[in-house]
Amino acid sequence: MRFMIIVKATTDSEAGVMPSQELLDAMQKYNEELLKAGVLLAADGLMPSSNAIRISYPEPGDKPILVDGPFTESKELIAGYTLIEVKSREEALEWALRMPDPHGNGQGELELRQVFEVEELMDNPDTLAKESDLRKQIEEQKKA
């Protein structure tokens, strides 16, 4: 299962204020921990929305409207993401909780989102039923 830990933007991140050395160190240590646990797939930080472009479709079927950044509502913006691969939702949450407070100024906010994946074989009820039949057969062969 893949999860994305989304780091929300703050007034600081939008203003391009670099995080403190202490926070940078803590983030690096955290990323190393993810790496050494074999769960990190990708992680990136995003530039402030001042060089972003918003593309919106107010009239369906019409051409989109482009708006240059910066955008004001920083809570709605994201400042970075970390993509992890884990075995359960609980494991994803546990890793998310271990991420340092990304801003340390009271505005820090993370959002944990599961990545939508093509139906896994193991989640397919038919396959599961077949496998359980097969296991029963094997058990019975053993007894015989």
Binding site: A37, K87, S88, E90, E91, L93, E94, W95
Partner: peptide, 10 residues
């Protein structure tokens, strides 16, 4: 318990 399972795995 489910959380403990996850921590155990880590």
């Amino acid at each position: 318990h489910r959380t403990i399972d996850a921590i155990w795995r880590i």
